[in-house]
């Protein structure tokens, strides 16, 4: 499926999502509450089959956080980017580790680096950071570490 066809199909399936223009791949902006059912559709729909979650990350925009999911299909080879705005003070989104199992690791990384809570995650705890770092999220823009961070 080409990008245009794919976009029509996605717009049909997810009427609430908004599309962002000007990027290499289709970018969809969704509400966090819609994410889990939508992820299931993306994975299971016979003409979409997004079975490969190759990048899962978060961006701190100071006013809010944005979760970014890069998905592709190993069958159709199409790609898509899903974005979801989260409230910075209460960052919560459903975990997709039951759909793409690689998400379990990636979500743990985002949890410790950005403080995003993934609901219904099987094992949400620190992965890279040592014990005692809960609540201090190094990749947030307002993170300060006077000892280890050197400002240029």
């Amino acid at each position: 499926m080409g990008n245009d066809e794919l976009k029509i199909k996605l717009a049909e399936l997810f009427p609430k999502a908004t599309f962002e223009e000007g990027a290499e791949w289709i970018q969809m902006q969704i509400e966090p509450s819609d994410w889990l059912p939508m992820a299931q559709t993306l994975r299971q729909d016979a003409s979409l089959q997004f079975d490969y979650l190759f990048c899962l990350t978060c961006v701190d925009w100071k006013t809010h956080l944005t979760m970014v999911y890069h998905l592709s299909s190993t069958i159709f080879r199409h790609n898509i980017v899903i974005k979801s705005k989260l409230n910075r003070s209460k960052a919560e989104i459903e975990s997709v580790s039951s759909i793409w199992r690689t998400a379990e690791f990636h979500e743990r990384e985002v949890y410790e680096m950005f403080g995003v809570h993934f609901l219904h995650h099987p094992d949400l705890r620190l992965l890279i950071l040592p014990d005692g770092w809960e609540g201090k999220n190094p990749l947030l823009k307002d993170f300060e570490d006077p000892i280890n961070m050197i400002k240029l």
Partner: peptide, 9 residues
């Protein structure tokens, strides 16, 4: 199927 789900490459 597992390898794809785990994002292996």
């Amino acid at each position: 199927a597992d390898a794809i789900s785990f994002g292996c490459s």
